[in-house]
Design a protein around this nucleic acid. Structure first.
Length: 122
RNA sequence: UACAACAGCCCAGAUAGCCGCUCCCGGCCGUUUUAGGCUUAGGGGGAGGAACUUCCGGACUCCACAAGGCAGUGCGCCGCCCGAAAGGACGGGACGACGGGGCCAUAUCACCCCGUUGGACGGAAAGUGCAACAGAAAACAAACCGCCCGCAAGGGUAAGGGUGAAAAGGUGGGGUAAGAGCCCACCGCGUUUGCGGCAACGCAAACGGCACGGUAAACCCCGCACGGAGCAAGGCCAAGCCGGUCCACACGCUGCCCGCGUUCGUGACCAAGUAGGCCGCUUAGAGUAAUGGCUAUCCCGGCCCGCAAGGGCUGACAGAAUCCGGGGUAUAGGCUGUUAAAAAAC
RNA sequence: UCCGGGAUGGUGUAAUGGUAACACGGAUGCCUCUGGAGCAUUAAUUCUAGGUUCGAGUCCUAGUCCCGGAA
């Protein structure tokens, strides 16, 4: 399954979020911030977590931003090095108006972070 | 004929393909049993009219509780209907605002009639409080100017002046030293009676002779209702740590038995319960929390370009988390009604 | 999700229903050779919209925004 995004590819425990953010690399790009960390044990899956502040908007806006980010991650998961825990936190809803610009912004940041496969370098 | 505001009702784009998510049934893998994983057979369910707000009411759960009372909070014209309640629908009555008409020689106010419209519309004759500034005086009345009597001292007087949101019945006549419900008529107010109405209330008559101004979304009084917390309620399972009982061994009281005490234990059992899990939980039912993305065609509305054919852009408010019933607020589009008659255009 | 609390000049706070007050800061002027200090002046939709009242920052209703608590 190339493009699926079932549960094990997602971060969903508060402990995980806190552990990753406490000792992870952090990088700010246009409209979003990412934290990432190589997973501690081998063979781990690439996992995604999304943090959206209430300052970004109402429930509709926050849900939409999360869906677009999840979609962007899902379509580009194979480009990331496996076993990376990644947390994305958008800071502006304008950069994430549609799925194309969301993908562009996410890939640009991941490229800067050096967690893409070398063959897919931008 | 259109725009707009308000009110009521309807609706909340459709179909197909591909890539995904979530839950249930089924299947497969795995496991001693669980846990878990996969969809390599398949099948089915998956946001709203407001899911928003958390302003009311209820179900449900736990806590408290003899009866009763106090305090506190909420509600408050009348009738009838719906509802478990909150609340809502319809009709009616007083009051206020606005418009029109009447009364009058004309006309303001007042009063009467009609229409439209508004709403937390019990009580100010149980008590307490409040009323800035202005004004003589702001509530058992009072005398600044004025008027009258008087030589004066002093007294009488609420008609007139001016202040104020509000000044102690109004208008007219009589009366008087000047005045005044002091007297009279009409109106207002109050009481009683009668009549109409289920009632709120209305009408009439008699009597009173003006006391009894406003404010209760001030305290309060009257009537009615209400115990408190909320699914992060509450319940079940339960690592680790801590605790208790028993058992075995050792030591001590003591040389022995019994008894008691202490320490230790890959020992047994128990209680409480943290992390964590499960139930509560749903014909949507999660726990970083699903209901999405892309493409095509069509539909409805709007904007722009174009003589036209057509082309391009764009689509409202907002997203379940225990569940129901209401109130309030936000909304693209459609229909109906009101403002509403004019002006403007034809 | 379920409960509380609040909003007043630029900032922090006051105000029995009756002229919106105080401190710091800002601006302008005076004083001084200049600056500081000092003195004077100045600036408010009391979050918004309705209502009660003669009169509302205060009372009532609805809304907006902010803060806090409960795994």
């Amino acid at each position: 399954m190339l493009y699926g995004l079932p549960k094990p590819f997602r971060l969903h425990l508060k402990k995980d979020f806190e552990a990753i953010i406490r000792n992870a690399y952090r990088l700010q790009g246009e409209g979003m911030v990412i934290w990432w960390r190589p997973s501690s044990y081998p063979g781990a899956r690439t996992r995604l977590g999304i943090v959206v502040s209430r300052k970004l908007g109402g429930a509709v806006v926050r849900n939409r931003v999360k869906r677009l980010l999840r979609e962007s991650f899902r379509l580009n998961r194979e480009k990331l090095k496996p076993g990376t825990d990644l947390i994305v936190s958008p800071r502006s809803s304008e950069i994430l108006a549609d799925v194309h610009s969301a993908q562009r912004a996410l890939l640009a940041l991941c490229g800067k972070a050096g967690i893409l496969h070398s063959s897919d370098n931008l």
